[in-house]
């Protein structure tokens, strides 16, 4: 008897589960009036972008989030039948790699070319930058005189011995920074720079950018390399301890001045997938993302720098004033990515 009950229990469970799964499988397939977005951005504020787009156009946004490389793998394995229309990433190097793999298609759009500066998009329209993030230096106000700060290169100076905090070389923001240095100075000089940085680290790399900022505030080091919005988020946090931490820090934009390359900048960007089933919706979505309303969401919500001139910055970002940017070269980031990792591995930058 017991066995029967058990077997019946399992069968019922399976049946119920199967019935439950059917509608979900059915809705997995997208409808003609949709746009399917594969995104490696993970911000709640992006949900606003999608719902506003649906409200404006009636086009429903279907979303999958994951890491860039896995999303790429998924598009590749889905092949010609892939439902993907848009790939949205947070690194220009990855945009370049996707284009090289033949997974993007060119888009000729007057809106995109007129609104987005030429160096922030692919010349033939394979992808377009949507928002910028700057890799800046955050220093402890009371222990570092900003006059001591100048460039990324100068961080190799022995006076910074055991004072610098930076995250692991696994992180793409460090890879693109080192990739830009390779472009500027070549492999050998960058290798020496990386070795000097490792010698100057206050501790082995651990944690994310926020952790580096909090650690400087706590006194574990004097200076952190971080993306700007992590600082902005601490400063604007509704948590008092985080605001206090931000209060002990100040930001410095390196490599400024007439001889400077400019501060290292990367972009969040997107392109239309080569096999996109809803090409028109996808293009409309890209055009919407560079519109004033969407750009303002980037600026206010995730506290990035908008790519379109004249869109109002978040007041905190505006208070930092304008700064000179290292002209973005996606091919450099993409092509030098592996070289950058090799260099950091050899230097012992974990």
């Amino acid at each position: 008897m017991r066995r029967r009950t058990f077997v019946r229990g399992v069968t019922t469970a399976l049946g119920v589960a199967a019935v439950g799964a059917v509608p979900t499988i059915a809705t997995a397939q997208s409808q003609p009036g949709d746009v399917n977005v594969y995104s490696s951005r993970h911000y709640d504020t992006d949900d606003r972008l999608y719902s506003d787009f649906t409200a404006q156009t009636g086009v429903r946004v279907n979303l999958i989030e994951g890491t860039e490389d896995q999303l790429l793998a998924r598009i590749q394995s889905e092949g010609a039948n892939s439902p993907a229309d848009i790939l949205l990433t947070v690194d220009a190097g990855r945009l370049w790699r996707t284009e090289q793999a033949g997974l993007f298609q060119p888009v000729a759009s007057e809106v995109l070319t007129s609104r987005v500066p030429a160096n922030l998009r692919h010349p033939e329209g394979f992808w377009v930058g949507l928002a910028k993030r700057a890799r800046v230096l955050a220093y402890a106000k009371h222990r570092v005189d900003p006059a001591e700060l100048s460039t990324y290169e100068a961080l190799a100076d022995p006076k910074w011995r055991r004072r610098i905090l930076v995250r692991s070389s696994s992180n793409v923001y460090n890879q693109s920074l080192v990739g830009a240095l390779i472009e500027a100075h070549g492999l050998d000089a960058t290798q020496q720079w990386a070795r000097a940085i490792v010698a100057n680290m206050a501790r082995p790399p651990q944690g994310g950018d926020s952790d580096q900022l909090l650690a400087v505030a706590a006194g574990a080091g004097d200076l952190a390399i971080s993306n700007h919005y992590y600082y902005a988020r601490l400063a604007m946090s509704d948590n008092a301890a985080q605001r206090e931490a931000a209060d002990k820090l100040a930001l410095f934009f390196p490599n400024q001045g007439p001889d400077g390359r400019g501060t290292h900048v990367n972009v969040s960007g997107a392109g239309v997938v080569a096999t996109a089933p809803h090409r028109d919706n996808a293009v409309a979505f890209l055009e919407y993302l560079v519109g004033d309303a969407a750009q303002a969401v980037f600026a206010r919500g995730s506290m990035e720098f908008p790519v379109v001139e004249g869109v109002e910055l978040h007041p905190l970002l505006a208070s930092w004033g304008p700064f000179q940017e290292d002209p973005l070269n996606a091919a450099t980031f993409g092509y030098n990515g592996r070289g950058a990792l090799f260099i950091m591995d050899r230097a012992g930058w974990r």
Binding site: T24, N36, D44, L63, I64, G66, R74
Partner: peptide, 20 residues
């Protein structure tokens, strides 16, 4: 995270979105 259908979030995915 990577195999799921469109718009199909789970508790673990929610943790990932905020934690990442």
């Amino acid at each position: 995270l990577i195999v799921r259908p469109f718009n199909f979030d789970t508790l673990a995915v929610r943790v990932y979105r905020l934690a990442s």
